[in-house]
């Protein structure tokens, strides 16, 4: 009898196999979400409600709006992101799908990167909708190229650490409350420079004031992604 799943022999084949697995997990998440729209609609409604609540809670003059925008935006992204992370891993838990993924003969970090890219894509979609809505509601110009770069870097760090921690939390009985409790203290090193860098872009500060925060964001993105790459196998195995 033959076994159809032939082992990759050369490093080129292994890399192709690895990338194919990452792509397959990403495709699966996007295809399932396009069909159900459960995750995106929950994230979007929640994010819109958060910025609406802030809009009514903080009756702000124009000058103050500029200074609180970065904080309100990142609180909104972080809260909506947590919903998305929870839902994204809940899908893997339904019908035992996580076991199905773990049974595949691929490096488990490929599963992590596939899931993390999917989570990042969902966050970016929500951010692409929230930024213009926020701009209209608060009368603040957010169509700044620098801001898009900061949002991208902050979202990468958030998805990197969030995917790892949600894989850990999904195995617990109290997973819905566990994820935010685990995530927010760990993700603070990403959120603080993201808020500061966003503020620097919105207030039009000098590049010398912006770059330290951007460097910090890039460093944390790299550290969190590398840590997750090394730890994912231990997190998902019994």
């Amino acid at each position: 009898m033959t076994s159809g799943a032939a082992p990759a022999t050369s490093s080129g084949q292994r890399t192709r196999g690895y990338l194919r697995a990452v792509g397959a997990v990403l495709w699966k998440d996007l295809a399932a979400e396009l069909r159900s729209r459960e995750l995106l609609s929950a994230m979007l409604v929640f994010a819109l409600l958060v910025i609406l609540v802030f809009n009514f809670a903080l009756e702000l003059d124009l000058a103050t709006r500029q200074t609180v925008t970065s904080g309100v935006l990142w609180v909104t992204f972080a809260f909506a992101g947590t919903l998305g992370l929870n839902r994204s891993m809940a899908v893997e838990r339904d019908r035992g799908c996580l076991d199905g993924l773990l049974l595949a003969p691929v490096d488990r970090s490929a599963l992590y990167f596939g899931k993390a890219l999917g989570n990042l894509a969902f966050m970016l979609i929500i951010e692409a909708i929230i930024l213009p809505v926020y701009s209209l509601l608060y009368n603040v110009n957010l169509f700044l190229p620098g801001l898009l770069g900061v949002v991208l870097l902050g979202s990468i760090g958030y998805a990197a650490v969030g995917t790892l921690l949600s894989s850990m939390a999904v195995q617990a009985r109290t997973r819905d409350v566990l994820l935010p409790i685990l995530l927010f203290p760990v993700v603070l090193p990403v959120l603080i420079p993201a808020v500061k860098a966003t503020n620097a872009v919105l207030l039009g500060l000098e590049a010398a004031e912006l770059w330290p925060w951007l460097n910090l964001l890039i460093a944390y993105d790299v550290i969190f992604t590398a840590a997750a790459f090394m730890l994912f196998d231990f997190v998902v195995e019994e």
Binding site: A5, R20, A32, V91, R95, A104, P105
Partner: peptide, 26 residues
Amino acid sequence: VVSHQPLLYGDLTAEENLRFYARMYG
């Protein structure tokens, strides 16, 4: 491996599920 859970995605079709796993198995 077959367990009492199907290890299949409810929001994908039967064919999409199998094609997804086929890619995972190379």
